[in-house]
Structure formats: C-alpha cells, structure tokens
Nucleic acid binder design. Structure first.
Length: 201
DNA sequence: GTAAAGATCCACT
DNA sequence: GTGGATCTTTACT
C-alpha cells in the first residue's frame, strides 16, 4: 500500500517539492480505468522572480490564477494548441510557484495508456516520457485544472520502499525566451532512469 | 478585433 | 537538426 501526500508536502518551496516528488507515484483514478506512473523528471518554476514562469513579475491572468491559490492543486494548461501540461501548485497560499511534471515511468495500466496514446507497440519507453505525452496517457486535460490533489481523481502517493536512486540536476527545457534563467538548474531527474524526456549533458 | 507566440511532439530532408 | 501541426492565451499595431 501507499500513502497519499498531504497538503503540507506541497506547502513548501517549489525547488524542494520538485526534488521530493521524484520517485513518487502519480495516480489518475477514473471510474473503471486507473493509471499509475512513477515521477522521474520535474522542473521547478519559482514564480515572480523567475523569467521562465507564467507568473514572472507577479503577472496574474485568468489562466494563471490557480497558481496563486493554495498548494496541492493541479495547474493544467494547453500548449501549442494540442498538448496539455500538468503542474503542481506549491508554496504558501498566495505565492505563484509550482512544479512542472515532465516525465513518468509507466507502472500501470499499460494497455490503457497505449490506447490513449494511440500506440500498439509493446514498447513502454515512449508512453509517458514527456509532458504532453504523460497528460495523454493519464487522461489529464483542462477539466482537471484546479483539481485538489488530496482528492480522489488525481493524486500523488509515497512509495513505502526506501529511496533507491540518485538525483541529477539539469537546465530546464524549451524556455529560450527566459534569458539567463534558461541556465538555472531547476530540472531534476532520477539519475540514469530511461524514461526521462531528455538526457542531461 | 487582431496578431504573435508558446514549459510539445512527430516526421523527415 | 529542422519544420509543420494547431489553437488558446495574451497583449496590443
């Protein structure tokens, strides 16, 4: 068995939460179709002082409102007109920071994930190794924006096993618009895990 | 109202 | 490595 992470876990700095989310289990529970993936890659977005963040400078729009709300909620948005991205809101209520989930290692149900991704292959290496892909495989879309992650539809659980991996830090991806911040090492990966979206240098 | 760009993915010259 | 798909969000020529 595993234990669902509480609101306290999320109510900390994005960098700490991003590191601690590695190795945890993301669970999507729809009636009749439950999918689980181990989190293997995250990125921290630091809010008003982070040029890469949607909330840089304290910018607040209809889309980003949820990031300013209480921790432990989902921030889901559509990118490039076709893919969803899933973030976890962190920090105290009122601070606009969060953690972007970039990749999962598929745990189950692999057949459901393949079906949602439109793949037939036995290979499981390309099911959830990217932010858009994992949202497809886990059926995460804008209807889950603002969803409470201590609820039943979408939540994250601690594994009861010992921590059995090392953490690699790397630059974040595809934020060339962010100037110097693109060099900040705010991406965290499970060292040598094959299911990450992109290997670090 | 209109335009420009995007925390991506996939196919391929 | 490069470019196209595709459309919401955001900021204004």
């Amino acid at each position: 068995m595993s234990e669902k992470l509480s609101k306290d876990f999320y109510a900390r700095d994005a960098e700490k939460v991003a590191r601690d989310l590695l190795g945890k289990l993301l669970i999507r529970d729809k009636r009749g179709s439950k999918t689980t993936g181990k989190i293997v890659e995250t990125e921290a977005y630091l809010g008003k002082d982070d040029p890469a963040s949607h909330t840089f400078g304290g910018k607040k729009t209809e889309r980003t409102e949820i990031i300013y709300g209480p921790p432990g909620h989902a921030y889901v948005y559509l990118i490039y007109g076709m893919y969803h991205c899933f973030n976890v809101v962190t920090g105290k209520d009122g601070t606009p920071e969060g953690v972007f989930i970039r990749a999962l290692e598929p745990v189950d149900d692999l057949d459901i994930m393949r079906k949602r991704r439109g793949l037939d292959s036995e290979d499981k290496g390309n099911l959830t190794d990217g932010p858009g892909k994992l949202c497809m495989a886990m059926d995460i879309d804008k209807s889950l924006n603002g969803e409470d992650l201590t609820g039943e539809k979408l939540f994250i659980s601690e594994r009861k096993s010992a921590k059995d991996f090392e953490i690699t830090e790397a630059k974040r991806i595809n934020i060339d618009y962010a100037g110097d911040a693109k060099n900040w090492k705010l991406r965290y990966l499970i060292k040598d895990n094959p299911f990450v979206s992109e290997k670090p240098d």
